[in-house]
Design a protein around this nucleic acid. Structure first.
Lengths: 373, 373
DNA sequence: ACTCGTTGCTAAATCGGGTTAGCGCCCGAT
DNA sequence: ATCGGGCGCTAACCCGATTTAGCAACGAGT
């Protein structure tokens, strides 16, 4: 079936040189080690003719690198969320000639241990530990055996791991600014969390940070949150229930929904009460889930930059891998000044606003066009 | 940092035996090769104490197997679709101690070539070629270097590759039966494709097969399709437009939408015309996209079994790998009778109906409860 | 006492590359 | 003629396992 791969030995024999010479030439060290132009060209030509490709497994055995990184997510490497993150990571890795192992722990610590083990057994060069919703996680010891970064998560105990997170606070500010810029001053309600900082679903970093941003931006504009309804889980049904509950007593002019699924429920509730979006009620939300552009009117929302998060995680991981390598070389040597990154650095990836159709200029407001991005 | 892994040589030395003996014992061939109980226990105990784990890269170099399979998808290993497929594949692979490489070709043949190369360079034991929507694909030659299966795709030219596909024809039958069983006889319209078999989006196998199933089941019940509207792309906006167009001239009693996104558009159109689901119009659809259970009323739909497709692909791939291995052993030997699988076998994974709230019993119909599953 | 057959283990080759040390050769200088 | 030194290349070892071939020790049979 498969006619055996061409090996370095084959190339060497065909070119009439030793394996060493072939290896030297093909790894670009020919010049440095004084291989003649003549031989060099012959080897390169032969390798091409035979369509030689080095076996990475073999090379990895010698060099210790497998040109592979592991992507470990807790729940569902699979939700739509993860999809684009993986895509970003995939492309960033590919740019460097690396492949991606995927694994899921399903929140099970034992599974996680096994998975990390399986990855180490395959000599991964680095690890990305991803969480599907922004939160703090307990970092398993096994992770420390290789360079690693946290994606969409923060370490529960202080750990020397870089973390990549969406810029949630700024996202909160941006959502609020969308309403403020459209002239909204009164009747702004929150659906999903708030109004106080402790009125949030457990473990949800995003909720806290979005809320902080919202309150900051609103505060700066001299605007007060008129009220809020929390949701035990950020699903459409709870968004529906929370909004219905709200509408029983008040007539809001604008809603900030803590995610798009909640917003979907809010749309349904408003429809039930005969209220129109955005004529009666403006809505701004978070995530830019696919449904956001399927809803009518299309939902204005602050997007989770999944793709960029994935890319960034790989980028940061590679600086970690580089740091690790050079640390090995000058083991024990004092770090030179200026080279001192704190290893636990937190990288924030900006969340862009997707302006669509769910926000209207407030009655009596002067549209001044001074919109924030 | 990482205190060097424990190798087989370490275990052997600590146990006072040769590497050979240690290897024999730890790979379970100790009994067979007459290693004494005494030594065997000593080795096992030592390995445990040192927490020895074999290096799979090294083992792979010798045995040729990397205990890894490659999952190559065309577009977005990432859409919600792919997510569960990958999850299924992941778990099935994990059950066998295998890891998954993920790769995306984005429909680019050159990228695909590179990706397959990169996977072969890492000695993958097998490949899954997945398509994100059911269609025929051109199988690159490079695939044949290892056992492979097609997932959600059929080879364009006849190729000896097994294919895993959802049972779309039967799904079509089931969707139609849902309406028939609810007593619907008249005013059944299709949104997305039909009424003729050639009225389908290009390249969409699913459309053709669902349509075949629908027409069969309806025909058997002596029911005629009242009409249909095609959609250039199966997105909500086209579903909305197509349904609106339909409602301008007729009042349907039931719609079969070719997927849930179309159904979402149909809901919106019906709402525009003041028609209620399911009181005025029953709707049945395909895919069981997450939105199906977010819509109001919750959508009755025939689910794409993504998770099972992924699992099945891995299962079939492993029988291919096994076949390949034994073919190598008895190279040239004639296949024994009864062992003759056609290699191009097509496996169909059933699509289950998710009964929800969008189908009502037809006026004047006698609910006889003789529902098909 | 000598062969033969087990039993229990190990030396050595192998997989496919990367890496180090150093071998022959030719040239110019002494 | 001899020596030193650069040039051009290769032998040999290494990574960490698996696997084949075979060695020593011992008891039984003749």
């Amino acid at each position: 079936m498969s006619p055996r791969r061409v090996t370095l030995a084959d190339v060497a024999k065909a070119a009439g040189v030793s394996r060493t010479t072939a290896s030297l030439v093909l790894s670009g060290r020919g010049r440095e080690l004084r291989i003649s132009q003549d031989v060099e060209q012959r080897v390169v030509k032969t390798a091409e003719e035979l369509q030689y490709r080095p076996n990475i497994v073999s090379r990895g055995l010698r060099t210790g690198s497998s040109r592979t990184i592991g992507f470990v997510s807790d729940t569902v490497a699979t939700s739509r969320l993860a999809g684009d993150m993986i895509k970003g990571a995939l492309e960033a890795a590919r740019d460097r000639g690396f492949m991606l192992f995927i694994g899921e722990t399903e929140g099970d610590a034992e599974l996680e241990r096994l998975l990390l083990q399986a990855m180490h057994d395959r000599q991964v060069d680095g690890l990305i530990l991803a969480s599907m919703f922004t939160r703090t996680i307990k970092v398993p010891k096994a992770v420390m055996a290789a360079p690693a970064v946290l994606l969409n998560a923060l370490p529960k105990q202080p750990a020397p791991l870089p973390a990549i997170l969406p810029g949630e606070v700024e996202a909160g500010r941006r959502a609020a600014r969308v309403l403020v810029d459209a002239g909204h001053r009164d009747g702004i309600y929150l659906i999903g969390a708030g109004p106080r900082l402790r009125d949030v679903p457990p473990e949800s970093l995003a909720a806290v940070e979005r809320l902080i941003g919202i309150r900051e931006a609103l505060g700066e504009a001299g605007v007060k949150v008129a009220g809020a309804r929390t949701c035990p889980d950020w699903q459409p049904e709870y968004g529906l229930a929370a909004t219905r509950d709200l509408l029983r007593t008040v007539r809001p002019r604008a809603l900030i929904c803590f995610n798009d699924r909640i917003a979907m429920g809010a749309y349904q509730a408003l429809d039930d009460f005969g209220l129109k979006v955005p004529a009666d009620v403006s809505i701004v939300s978070f995530d830019d889930h696919p449904i956001a552009s399927w809803m009518r009117p299309r939902l204005t929302t602050v997007a989770l930059p999944h793709y960029e998060l994935g890319r960034k995680a790989v980028d940061v991981l590679f600086t970690e891998i580089g740091r690790d390598r050079s640390a090995g070389e000058r083991a024990g040597e004092a770090h030179r000044a200026g080279e001192v990154h704190r290893a636990g650095e937190v990288h924030r990836v900006p969340m862009p606003v997707r302006h669509r159709e769910s926000v209207a200029v407030a009655d009596g407001a002067v549209a001044d066009g001074a919109g924030s991005t």
